[in-house]
């Protein structure tokens, strides 16, 4: 039932309200917050990245100077960029694969009760959130530290190692903790995805000569899981490049010789400690671009897997 009302302007306006009034009622409250806290900040960051801004004086336009000094003059930034790549490329894919593998293996378990228990156990580090800070005691540098006292007991170490402050070890400690808590929302998405696979396809596969669970995984399960794999990838990229919180909590901020410094920490350093908002914004924009590029790449790869 469509009735077009032709007439003067005010009437048209009323018809717009009539048509979209309820839509606006539902959508606008959230959309306003979304714009203010997500969309506009991204645009604001792009704008300020071309300025010199200290929150007090009005921003001065400086062209691409911030980007030039980031990549040419700021050794700490280069260090933090390579660290971020290291963490992202190690913990991102590894966490993603572990999540997928564990979800798959949990699905192979017959008992519903044990599946629930295992899901809870593997999800618990992400669920418990800040409890990762307690790894401070495990990696603690004195001989009371759990790891040190164990290794001393076993006769592997003769004196305690500074796991969190020695640049030779602290990156490894951070990677372990990040992987420990990598089974988060993406993992739950995988678990749920496995549960709703089309059972008929497995029977058809068995008839067509699928011989073991690896073939089944590759030819039947994976193509059906592409939507879940995609959302898992988004979540994993967003986490992998936003690395920094765990580093700061465990190895201190700044860490010894910036050994575990990341782009995120560099940004908060310039933003909240030095109030060089223009420079901090440029760092944020670099992060945005990195995440978008990686998302495009992985999206393309996953689309090749898809059956339809």
């Amino acid at each position: 039932m469509k009735t077009k009302i032709k007439g003067s302007k005010p009437r048209k306006k009323r018809s717009f309200l009539y048509k979209y009034g309820s839509t606006m009622f539902f959508l606008l409250p959230w959309l306003a917050l979304f714009c203010f806290f997500v969309v506009i900040p991204i645009l604001v960051a792009v704008f300020f990245s071309f300025t010199d801004f200290d929150m007090v004086r009005s921003p001065q336009f400086v062209g691409i100077r911030n980007y030039v000094s980031l990549f040419l003059d700021d050794e700490t930034f280069i260090k933090s960029l390579s660290n971020t790549f290291f963490y992202a490329l190690v913990t991102g894919p590894a966490g993603y694969l572990i999540s997928f593998a564990v979800a798959w293996l949990i699905n192979e378990i017959g008992s519903k009760f044990w599946r629930s228990v295992l899901t809870l156990v593997f999800y618990s580090p992400a669920l418990a959130g800040n409890v990762y800070m307690m790894w401070n005691y495990i990696f603690s540098g004195d001989s009371y530290g759990l790891l040190n006292s164990w290794l001393t007991e076993l006769g592997i170490l003769s004196k305690p190692i500074q796991w969190l402050t020695d640049p030779a070890y602290n990156s490894m400690a951070v990677v372990i903790v990040i992987l420990w808590m990598s089974m988060g929302v993406g993992f739950l998405s995988f678990v749920a995805g496995f549960k709703q696979l089309n059972k008929d396809l497995f029977e058809a596969g068995a008839i067509d000569g699928v011989r073991n669970r690896w073939q089944e995984l590759w030819y039947i399960t994976l193509p059906q899981m592409v939507p879940q794999l995609k959302i898992g990838a988004v979540l994993s990229i967003s986490g992998a490049f936003a690395v920094g919180g765990v580093n700061a909590a465990l190895t201190g901020n700044p860490s010894t010789d910036y050994s575990t410094h990341t782009v995120l920490l560099h940004m908060t350093d310039y933003g909240y400690s030095r109030y060089e908002m223009g420079y901090a914004s440029a760092i944020a924009v670099v992060l945005f671009v990195l995440m978008l590029v990686f998302w495009k790449l992985i999206h393309g790869v996953l689309n090749r897997f898809s059956t339809d």
């Binding site: 959508l27 979304f34 506009i40 604001v44 933003g271 909240y272 998302w295």
Partner: peptide, 30 residues
């Protein structure tokens, strides 16, 4: 059904990439 619906839906998906930590500096300014 409304104008810009497809655009907003796309924005919702892309925005999942940007965690609050990453946008915190410009958020702070605002």
């Amino acid at each position: 059904k409304f104008p810009l619906k497809g655009f907003i839906t796309q924005a919702v998906v892309i925005a999942i990439l940007f965690r609050p930590e990453v946008t915190s500096v410009p958020q702070y300014i605002l």
